[in-house]
Lab assay of single mutants.
Amino acid sequence: TEYKLVVVGAGGVGKSALTIQLIQNHFVDEYDPTIEDSYRKQVVIDGETCLLDILDTAGQEEYSAMRDQYMRTGEGFLCVFAINNTKSFEDIHQYREQIKRVKDSDDVPMVLVGNKCDLAARTVESRQAQDLARSYGIPYIETSAKTRQGVEDAFYTLVREIRQH
């Protein structure tokens, strides 16, 4: 089974770092803004072998026109913010609204991801993020692309959301 996953969120929150940590098991430290990259990885989730087709997208506003296209083809979405960047957390709402509009559905598989949880300088409390996820009816997972904490959990949870859909 193949799953088309799309990673969305503001610029600099760590979308590529999360994806590369999942696929290649290493942490990319330097920031190089993405336009669009796709990665494929075969994994076993709950005993089922599946192929993850992951689209890593641009957070930069100037590429926002490309969003409709990949939102149409994606089956599930990782909505990523950084726990030390309140603005990126506030941006999640717009991504969710755009996904709902493009998919013409209120019920699209999504996982809210709070990345950079290895950093002490948190400005978005776990509780705020949990409340937001609960209001959307989606899971919330904290990750660190640096330490790998929660990385597999985030992507695998999204696959489970798609399966249950």
Rank of each mutant, 00 (worst) to 15 (best):
E2A: 03
Y3S: 05
Y3V: 02
V6I: 06
V7R: 02
A10P: 05
G12H: 15
S16P: 01
A17L: 01
L18K: 10
F27W: 05
D29W: 03
D29L: 07
E30K: 12
E30H: 05
Y31E: 12
P33V: 06
T34S: 01
I35K: 01
E36S: 00
E36P: 01
D37T: 01
D37H: 01
S38H: 02
R40D: 01
Q42M: 00
V43E: 02
E48K: 00
E48T: 06
E48V: 04
T49E: 01
T49D: 01
L51E: 03
L51K: 07
L52F: 13
L55Y: 04
D56R: 03
A58G: 15
G59W: 13
G59T: 06
Q60T: 15
Q60C: 15
E61F: 15
Y63R: 15
Y63N: 15
Y63M: 12
S64P: 15
S64I: 02
R67C: 14
R67K: 09
D68T: 05
D68K: 07
Q69L: 06
Q69N: 03
R72Y: 06
T73Q: 08
G74A: 05
E75N: 07
E75Q: 10
F77V: 03
C79K: 02
F81Y: 02
A82K: 08
A82I: 00
N85S: 06
T86I: 03
T86A: 10
K87V: 00
S88Q: 05
F89D: 09
E90K: 05
D91Y: 09
I92E: 06
I92W: 02
E97H: 05
E97P: 06
Q98D: 02
K100V: 06
K100T: 04
R101P: 03
V102C: 08
V102A: 07
D104R: 03
V108G: 04
V108R: 04
P109Q: 04
P109G: 02
L112W: 13
V113K: 07
G114W: 06
N115D: 09
N115P: 13
D118A: 11
L119H: 14
L119D: 15
R122I: 08
T123D: 15
E125W: 06
S126N: 13
R127A: 15
Q128Y: 13
G137W: 00
I138Q: 12
P139R: 12
Y140S: 09
Y140D: 04
I141T: 10
E142S: 10
T143N: 14
A145C: 14
A145D: 03
Q149S: 09
D153R: 11
D153S: 09
L158K: 05
V159D: 04
E161C: 13
I162Y: 12
I162K: 01
R163A: 11
H165Y: 12
